[in-house]
């Protein structure tokens, strides 16, 4: 998932008896699985938490184009290049669906962009890792998009209408992303020794960062408890991580690759795989900005914004000129 450590009120779930009648009616609607729409009344904290969560999610889609964009000009065949191009274009689209959902909550697109560029808002830790070989394109599609899907599928049922609709659209498109990644992995894993080694190396490097995408355990988190009561978070981080591991291990076996975890084993009693936790110190370092690519990613986004300014302004000026000309022609005709 592309939203990590989203803070809500920090107070835990508000008890019913402390709610105002308006808040109680709001919670009743959520409990009855009704969707909240932009013009409906909502608690301020619900609005703010959603802006943080959807905004972070949108930023992740946009920054997430960079590690893959790195390989568009170096794809091994024209077909792979066309597919990767389409995939990266989808990520841009996903960012836009989500920004548009966030904007219905009363924040502007430019405000969100500024918050990303100033570092006030975050994007997923995963995109601060480099993509060193072509096999990484396979690993990213298979593991990173796979982890994202784990989180996004339940979010289709989230309580906020525009967010839910964006998620439904995104999930429809996301399955192509994961399958094209796995397809690359299959090709590499069944290729020459050198290709197989590259595939294993990509899995080794992306395994733990993918597990980190779900965020640290939030069993005790007051933020998550409130978000779950509001149905803007559906599962705990641990539930989703477990589901991801259970799904991915057999897929790795099918590829003939091994998961880089000596403690990974099937637990008959639990009906799940036991696995090692990622290094959470590394996770917090990456969130803080000390990951391998944080500086590069932010520089790329800032440059895109600054270098595009003349273009954005130029199109606005052109639109204004056209509007004025049309108005003048209309007056002249009257």
């Amino acid at each position: 998932m592309y939203a990590q450590m989203v803070k809500s009120t920090g107070q835990g779930v508000k008890p019913r008896e402390e709610m105002s009648p308006q808040e109680r009616a709001f919670q009743d609607r959520i409990d009855a699985d009704q969707k909240i729409e932009p013009k409906d009344w909502m608690p301020d904290a619900y609005r703010k938490t959603l802006i943080r969560q959807i905004g972070q999610h949108a930023h992740s889609e946009i920054v997430g184009q960079l590690p893959e964009g790195n390989w568009i000009t170096r794809a091994p065949t024209l077909e792979r290049k066309a597919i990767l191009l389409a995939k990266v274009q989808d990520e841009a689209g996903h960012g836009l669906y989500l920004y548009c959902a966030a904007e219905t909550l009363g924040v502007s697109r430019d405000e969100l962009t500024q918050d990303l560029l100033s570092g006030r808002m975050k994007y997923s830790s995963i995109f601060n890792y480099p993509t060193l070989t072509w096999a990484d394109m396979g690993a990213v599609g298979w593991l990173v998009d796979g982890a994202a899907i784990m989180n996004q599928v339940p979010l289709q049922r989230t309580s906020y209408g525009p967010y839910s609709r964006a998620m439904i659209r995104i999930c429809k498109e996301e399955s192509f992303h994961q399958r094209q990644g796995y397809d690359i992995m299959m090709k590499m894993a069944n290729g020459s020794d050198a290709q197989k080694k590259m595939a294993q190396d990509a899995l080794n490097r992306f395994w733990y960062p993918s597990l980190m995408m779900f965020g640290p355990s939030d069993k005790e988190s007051v933020h998550s408890a409130q978000s779950m009561a509001w149905k803007i978070k559906i599962n705990t981080n641990d539930e989703l991580r477990q589901k991801f591991v259970d799904q991915t291990v057999p897929q790795a076996e099918l590829l003939g690759l091994s998961i880089p975890d000596p403690d990974l084993r099937w637990n008959e009693e639990r009906g799940h795989y036991d696995f090692s936790e990622p290094d959470w110190t590394e996770f917090f370092d990456v969130l803080r900005g000390a990951g391998p690519c944080n500086t590069d990613r932010m520089a790329a986004r800032r440059n895109a914004w600054d270098d595009g300014a003349w273009f954005r302004d130029g199109l606005m000026a052109h639109a204004e000129k056209k509007r004025a000309r049309a108005a003048a022609a209309k007056t002249a005709a009257e």
Binding site: D90, E173, L315, A319, K322
Partner: peptide, 22 residues
């Protein structure tokens, strides 16, 4: 959904890219 564009003509072009890729 929605999107940002300087005028109607560009809005249609952007809508084609954002909402009709499939």
């Amino acid at each position: 959904g929605s999107l940002h564009a300087p005028d109607a003509e560009m809005a249609i072009k952007h809508a084609r890219d954002v909402y009709t890729r499939r």
